[in-house]
Structures are given as structure tokens and as C-alpha cells.
Simulated scan of single mutants.
Amino acid sequence: MNVRTANSYLYILILVGMISAFGPFVTDFYLPALPELSEYFGTSTFMVQLTLTVSMIGLATGQLLIGPISDRYGRKPPLILSLVLFIVSTIACLISTNIGSFLLFRFIQGIAGAGGVVISKSIATDLYEGKQLARFFSMLSSVQGLAPIFAPVLGGVLLLVTDWRGIFLTLLIIGLILLLTTIHFHESLQTPVQNSSSSTAKAYIPILRNRHFMRYVLAQTLVMGVMFTYIAASPFIFQKHYGLSSLTYSICFGINALGIMAGSLLTTYFPKVEKALSTGVSGFLLMSILVAATLLSGSSVYAVETALFLLLVCMGMILPTTTALALEPVRENSGYASAVLGFMAFLAGGICSPLAGLGNMLITTSVIILICAVSTLLLTIRKRTA
């Protein structure tokens, strides 16, 4: 551990886990309500789907802005500010009367959610190092990985008793709870980075030139591309192609989410972070081949579900290890580095999600997963032999 903090390890774990999952949760929680939003605002499906896109853009770009701010002014002030901004933008979404204003406030929501994603990694890097940092990230990733998967399922359940406003009211309540929880957080950054506003952009240059950092960032980006491809394609594959009910699909979705958690926890049993990553990447490639084979050969839904579950277990091993190994050498600028890491992850989502819907979804999904898996292996092998 680098510094002492007045907060307990359990408090830090719970707080960081909640704020890191908050951004992805905000993005996906209302997905089941998209058709209802289309009717409410009297607009096209495309315009309603655009509310998801602008939120992801806000999550990506917001991290590039908030990361440097947290390096300069500490973690707590920008975290509180981002939560206040989220609360205000959520209220604005609730009272929106047209799709144009709703899009604007969804974008602001995304920027606000980015604060938790980027600052959570920075707090962990401030407080821990080495194997302890990797172990913390393994637990953090198990929570963060579950958020975008469980969020639509929980949103669908909530819609059984309320409408889209109920979903956003729930988000508002969660935001208020997080704000109250954050007030008790003691600053983790002991030595702020003294960069002027004009030098903020320049501060990214040495980080982007750090080959060690960027290889792990790119590896995680590719894995997140697979994650978002799975999220975008799985409803159509399970419900339309295999004819599962929405309830059965939700059960499969939840089981696979547990796979990510299991993979993240598995990394804590490896003596070295690099060994856990190597095992995860190798398994990720093998399971990608298995997923593609089951999708393209017309295998049963049980075979596809088993292959996807194993793929997500391997994904759960890669996410925390790449995060820890990427941030370790750039901890003095962890806010900037975390911003790059988060930006690339959501950029991957913005690119891969629509690509999964091109042509035959079974084929495009298989191709995207295979390309990302092979590229991840090449990146990590190159690093190990460099």
C-alpha cells in the first residue's frame, strides 16, 4: 500500500465498486424501456437508440476530462461534482418533453457517470500496488463487469411494475445514495499533479507513448469489444434465433454474468499477475473458437450457452489483470491513464455493438469475437517477449 487512508478496506471496496459500475449501469439500465420511450416521445426507433449512443460518447469523452482533473485537484472533489451533475441531469431527463432535450441530458448523464469509472481506478492505484492492486482490481472488475450485463435484466424486471420514468427515478435515488456515501470518503491522492490547464493535453503524450501501458490498454480494449458485441447480439441470438422467452434469456444472461465474476476471482489464486493474464488470454482464444464453432454449426442453445459462459470466465480473468499491469508503471498519472483506459473501452463498445448487427448476426458475431481474441493473444505475447 502506498498511503494510509482513514477509510477501511471494506468501505473503499464497496465505494469504488459502486462508482465504477455506475457508468455502465446508467447506460444499460433503461434498455428494456426503449420501445416505450419511442411511443412516449413520438419518435423513430433510430432516435431512441441514439440516446444509448450519446450516453456512451459521454462516458468515453467524460473520462478524458475528469481523469486529469482528479490528478490535479484530488479524487473527492470531482467525484462529488460528477454525482451532483448526474442527479441534476437525471431530473432533467425525467421532465424532458421532447427527444432533443432528452438526448442532451443523456449525454450529460454519460459524462457524469464517467467520473466514477475513471476515479475508481485512480483511487485503487493511489492506495495499492503490486499483487494487492491486482487482487483489488480482480474484485473491482467482477463488479464492473456485471453492471452492463445485469442492468438490462433489472430494468426489465422493474418495468413490470413501473414505466421508463420509474427506471430514471431509481437511477436518481441511486445517485443520491452514492453522493451521501462519497461524503465520508477521505482523499486518497497525497501528491496532486501540478499541471496547468494548457498542459492537460500534453500530459497525455507520455502516457500514450508508454508501450507497456498501451499494449495492455489495447488488449483490454479488444476484450471489451467482445463484451459489447455479446451484449448487443445475445438478445437476438437467444430470443430470435433460438426462440427463448425473455425470462429464459434473462436467466442465461445472469448465469453468464456470474462467469465474469468467477474469472475475476480466479485471478487471486495465481502467484503472479502475468501468469493469470497468460492463462486468461489463452483460454479466451480457445473459447472464442468454441463459440464461433457452436454459432456457425447450428449447435443447440445449450452448447452455445456453455461456450459463452466459459468465454466470459476467461474475460473475467483478463479485465483485472490488464488493468493492474497497465496502471502500475504510470501510477504518478493514474487519473490520465485511467481516463485513456476507460475511453478506449467505451470506444470499443461504440464500434463493435453496431458491427454485430451487420448481415447474418451469427457470422458477424463470430468474426468479431475471433478477431479480437487473436489480436489480444498477439498483443500479450508481444509484451511478454519484448
Rank of each mutant, 00 (worst) to 15 (best):
P77Q: 08
I205Y: 06
A232S: 15
F284H: 11
S38G: 14
Q239L: 04
L277D: 06
S122N: 01
L347C: 08
Y242N: 05
I91N: 03
W164N: 04
G359N: 10
Y336L: 12
P32T: 06
A151S: 09
P77W: 08
S89V: 03
S96A: 15
F41G: 06
C252Q: 08
S122F: 07
N7R: 07
I69L: 15
L64M: 08
Y242Q: 04
E187N: 06
Y11G: 05
K272P: 00
S138V: 05
Y269G: 00
A6W: 07
T376L: 02
S44Y: 04
M18D: 02
K121V: 06
M224V: 14
Y249S: 03
G67M: 02
M47P: 01
T229H: 01
I369R: 07
G349Y: 12
L290E: 01
L169W: 11
F41Y: 13
P271C: 04
T162H: 11
R106D: 06
I318P: 04
L311V: 00
F136E: 13
A326P: 04
Q132N: 14
S8T: 15
S82T: 15
L127E: 02
Y302W: 12
I363D: 00
A219V: 06
I251F: 14
A21Y: 07
L277F: 00
N333V: 13
N2K: 15
I207C: 00
M214R: 02
Y242H: 14
S197R: 10
Y249D: 03
N7L: 06
L377E: 08
K275R: 15
P35R: 04
P354S: 10
T268D: 11
